[in-house]
Amino acid sequence: MPSSKVRASAKDALADVLKDGMLILSGGFGLCGIPSALIEAIRESGVTNLTIVSNNAGIDGVGLGVLLESKQVKRMVSSYVGENKLFMQQFLAGELEIEFNPQGTLAERIRAGGAGIPAFFTRTGYGTAVAEGKETREFDGHHYVMERGIFGDLAVIHAWKGDTEGNLIYRKTARNFNPMMATAAKVTVAEVEELHEPGSFDPDHIVTPGIYVSRLVKLDVIDKRIEQRTVRKREAAPALAGSDG
């Protein structure tokens, strides 16, 4: 009997979940491990006034960049956004709200949200703009900033392998924000490159247990992009001994 968690497409997986004004956690780091198909389904749905929590905002026309193009995002909670010109333009024009977080703080806020921890203290950001408007305390001679945990309405994540019960395995750098985001939302939807039957995985290899995953969809097309491709100029081959040149 097919699992009730598996959906035929990203659109089907999100059909009755999306609403205007949602807080959505979107996995990935740069363009690695981003849930591209699910992001595209969000764009096609037309929902607006979204708050997106993500390490970054993709690049122009790719990843979360497509939601910026359609102006469906009201607010971003991020660490790094330097690769997206449209992001910068909308921010400077007052069309987009931004809450910047140090990367480790953002990761911990999401982990805390998934663990049911409402707030925690960190030394990172004390005495900077990051701490403005936040409670601070001194512990053992050091100053700390209180940060709130993040728990969203929806998490969209990308995994390498999944089984029909929602157990997930990630591959290399794609194991970034995806695992913690999977735990930190009312509904978690995963897109997977490979879909397997339950019992196919070594239990020690499972990173996200299926209890956290509400729905999943197998990708038919896997588009893996390089955010920045930098190469050095090829050096001329050395002349062979005894050659005339």
Rank of each mutant, 00 (worst) to 15 (best):
E99F: 04
A174I: 03
C32S: 14
G27D: 01
L154W: 05
A184P: 10
L168Y: 02
K161S: 04
Y212F: 15
I222F: 08
A129T: 12
Q72H: 11
E83Y: 14
Q72M: 11
L168R: 08
A239M: 13
I59C: 10
A159N: 07
G162F: 03
L216E: 00
F121Y: 15
A15E: 09
T51D: 05
D204K: 15
P209C: 08
R123M: 12
H143E: 07
A129L: 09
E197L: 13
S79C: 13
S3T: 12
D223W: 13
I222K: 10
E83F: 14
L106K: 06
C32M: 13
L67D: 09
E197K: 12
L154Y: 05
V130E: 07
L216P: 03
D12Y: 02
M181I: 06
S26W: 01
V156E: 01
V207Q: 12
G116P: 01
L68C: 07
N56P: 04
A13K: 00
N55S: 10
Y144G: 01
V81A: 10
L38M: 03
T48V: 11
I117H: 05
L25E: 02
C32I: 15
G58S: 07
S36C: 06
R171T: 09
L240Q: 14
E235Q: 15
E135V: 13
R229T: 08
Q89L: 10
G199S: 04
L23G: 07
K233P: 02
S214Q: 08
P203C: 05
L154R: 09
F139G: 01
D16C: 00
F91G: 00
G113F: 00
E235W: 09
H142V: 13
I24G: 13
S9A: 10
I150N: 05
A174F: 01
I169F: 06
I52L: 14
Q90D: 09
K233I: 15
V145R: 03
L18T: 03
V192K: 00
K19E: 12
I206R: 02
G33F: 01
H205T: 14
F139W: 06
G104A: 11
A115L: 14
N56M: 12
